[in-house]
Design a protein around this nucleic acid. Structure first.
Lengths: 238, 238
DNA sequence: AGAATATAAACCGACGGTCGGTATATTATA
DNA sequence: TATAATATACCGACCGTCGGTTTATATTCT
């Protein structure tokens, strides 16, 4: 009853709640996670929750905000890395994003399955919107540099950057459906490969760069193609 | 108690329920519409609802299915219209889609605002997925014809078609945010215009067509630009 | 008449959110 | 410095809503 003794005082209660919510949302999904589950995980009661948040959606915003912000830190550094060409920076950028999308849901291989479940639409939606907002400036900087140095060709780097991020999200969404049921199914495997290629080509067209500027992805695609031929199929994210 | 008298017998109860759900979902949003509201609108009780549908999501699927199917009818005809070049068919295709996205939410000018509210994420998500699935074949056919006739240049018409539809959805999503708060705000107005241009250019690049093959859109853009200069700004869909 | 159908009515349980209260911490005051 | 006043952090009972279930019952078909 009442405020707990100092002995068990918390350091950052709100943070703990966000943590717990993060874990639960990303495994069970937003809708399927009762507020009480978050409280149980931290050992608090309703009152505490509504002391820190205005409602359930509020904690979702906090979770999404934290995920994106964390990523933004890394992303924002990329344009200013010395000794990297704009093309290399583009590669780095896309690598980071795809890595992040997977890595941030604890159980790595299960991540895609979990985050792309229909139930998690709201989370993804909010993540995507925020990601586009936050990452566009950094990507635009890279693109602009590429234009300056004559390797890319666009009129509005900002718009191109936004377009690329939108594309990236849309692709991820689309690929997920196939990746999820990737049980050695060569059919959908091939579709994933074809789509990925087209996706990269489209990006190249959008920034008006020379072809095949994404060796990292190309390597990955080759691996997938090899795996496809050899029969066994490994899971792979977008 | 029990089944009502014959006097108020219904013709197509299920259909009426889908209708009502449609209206309510598209105005209030899916989450904000209790099953009971649907029942009230039709004058039935819980029992009837769960007789026709397995649950709330079931009725959502029915609603989405009906919307997309209705559209699919029109779309599927386009590839086989005589006396239309592939480019003209592309135009027609995109016109229909953009028209449909607006026209199908009763109050026309309010449509965008309503359907793109955060609350309606799930509906849009399901609509988009189904739309991509259903419309890809027709669009692919158009693209393939264009390739045959030498006006377009792609390797896999199916993939290109899918990509275009994905892009279209992503753009719509992005534009909505600006369109919604389009209260004579020249800033976002300009952004909408720039994005639309880039969107069209990207499509052209994806299908490897000559530039500026979308006169209808170009005209619309010009109108928007004119409106922008003259000060007063009209709302416009994607 | 009796089986199948279509619907009503009552109810359940889960969940989001509210609220009054309470124990500790901090600051102001005498 | 002791004490009063207030702010902070939290508890837990309760409420209303809503999705879904169950059971009863009137209608139609055979």
């Amino acid at each position: 009853m009442g405020r707990p003794l100092k002995s068990e005082a918390r350091e950052d209660t709100r943070g703990e709640l966000v943590d717990a919510a993060w874990r639960l949302f990303s495994t069970a999904g937003y809708d399927a996670t009762p507020v009480e589950a978050i409280l149980d995980a931290v050992g608090l009661s309703k009152g505490a929750f509504y002391y820190y948040f205005s409602g359930k959606e509020d904690v979702l915003d906090a979770v999404v905000g934290r995920m994106v912000d964390e990523m933004a830190l890394e992303i924002e550094g990329i344009p200013h890395i010395k000794d990297l060409s704009p093309i290399e920076k583009m590669n780095r950028f896309m690598e980071e994003i795809s890595k992040w999308k997977l890595a941030h849901m604890d159980i790595l291989s299960e991540a895609v399955k979990v985050i792309y479940r229909d139930k998690n639409t709201i989370i993804r939606y909010k993540m995507n919107r925020k990601a586009v907002q936050e990452f566009t400036p950094a990507l635009a900087e890279i693109v602009a540099e590429g234009v300056e140095k004559g390797v890319f060709d666009v009129e509005q780097p900002e718009d191109a950057a936004e377009m690329i991020l939108l594309l990236s999200n849309a692709m991820a969404e689309q690929q997920a459906a196939d990746v999820i049921r990737l049980k050695n199914d060569p059919e959908s495997m091939q579709r994933v490969i074809r789509r990925t290629k087209l996706y990269l080509e489209t990006i190249e067209k959008v920034i008006g760069s020379p072809r095949s500027i994404f060796p990292l992805y190309d390597k990955r695609i080759q691996e997938m193609e090899k795996a496809l031929k050899s029969g066994r199929v490994k899971e792979n994210g977008v």
